[in-house]
């Protein structure tokens, strides 16, 4: 599904003392069927950006086009002053059409296609049992109760929660277990676009690896995956493309290998361990081939090669 941001601004609490300009004039076309990482300093606008893609938020100005759906500002825009009477009328009709769209079924259809796992699982969980929570999505999008439960159980097994968790309350779980339920809840709806906001925060190393492998499998089956993360090792390992946000703006969009290997502290980022180490070796005069560096094994190979 093509996704396109056009002159998108987003302001929290506009015209109040708490006003915060989270996104400023974003223009970007997102790649399809790729594994895309979104990175950037805390507060740079990543969570805001992804919430615009499934219309949990609407732009303050500009629009986001997601397939056929256009996410417009919620408030009708005032017509420019210099319009003729006819033009004004047409403007108003168009604004009205846009406004109605916000309340239409289209938004539900959009969310069926675009699944977002929140940064805080606590914001997503609400049912009294784990299986009901995960089954909510599929049921909401038209599956029978049985079908939805079946999908829920399958998704839960996939994230590593066995049947002993199915009837427990999602609120009485450990932090990482909650995270797994939240991920399963979106996986169960098999979205065309999967957005995960810091999905590995709070997961143990094995669970984080499993979750990433799962997202990769889903991406290879034709889903577009957007991963918000602070873990640069994951970006090096999994992403086809990386987008850097800084102070509400997109400052870079490139393959990870192009981003890594330079000083990233200006974005409050660091190079992945493998690049960082390779850089330090290079500074001491050991030249390495870093072109396809993704993980520790690649680095070890590059070192063996250089030492030959």
């Amino acid at each position: 599904m093509p996704i396109n941001f056009s002159h998108v601004f987003f302001t929290y609490n506009p015209k109040s003392p708490f006003q915060s300009n989270a996104l400023k004039d974003i223009n970007i076309t997102l790649p399809e069927h790729r594994f895309v990482a979104l990175v950037g300093r805390t507060g740079s606008g990543k969570s805001t950006f992804v919430q615009l893609i499934n219309a949990l938020l609407s732009p303050t100005d500009g629009y986001v086009k997601i397939g056929d759906y256009i996410n417009h500002p919620e408030k009708a825009k005032k017509a420019p002053k210099d319009l003729s009477k006819e033009q004004k009328k047409a403007w108003k009709a168009e604004q009205k059409r846009i406004q109605q769209k916000h309340k239409s079924k289209d938004i539900k259809a959009l969310r069926k296609h675009v699944g977002l796992v929140f940064q805080f699982p606590e914001y997503q969980l609400f049912e009294e049992t784990v299986e009901k929570d995960v089954a909510f999505g599929p049921k909401n999008f038209g599956d029978s109760k049985e079908e939805a439960l079946k999908k829920a159980h399958q998704a839960l097994e996939e994230v590593g929660l066995d049947s002993s968790f199915f009837t427990r309350s999602p609120f009485d779980l450990s932090g990482g277990e909650k995270r797994k339920v939240a991920i399963a809840g979106i996986l169960a709806t098999s979205p065309e676009v999967l957005i995960v906001d810091e999905p590995t925060a709070g997961l143990d190393p094995a669970a984080a690896k499993d979750a990433m492998a799962l997202f990769q499998k889903i991406e290879q089956a034709g889903t577009s995956v957007f991963l918000v993360t602070h873990d640069m090792d994951l970006v090096a390992q999994y992403a086809d493309e990386v987008i850097v946000l800084e102070n509400g703006q997109v400052v870079k969009q490139c393959p990870p290998s192009e981003l890594f290997g330079q000083d990233l502290t200006q974005y409050s980022l660091q190079n992945p361990h493998v690049f960082d180490f390779a850089l330090r070796l290079e500074k001491r005069g050991l030249k390495l081939n870093t072109a396809s560096l993704r993980n520790v094994d690649d680095l070890a190979n590059a070192i063996m090669e250089a030492k030959k």
Partner: peptide, 13 residues
Amino acid sequence: DEATSMLDPVGKR
């Protein structure tokens, strides 16, 4: 308790 799990790399350091 996982106090820095959502910090950017420089923030965490």
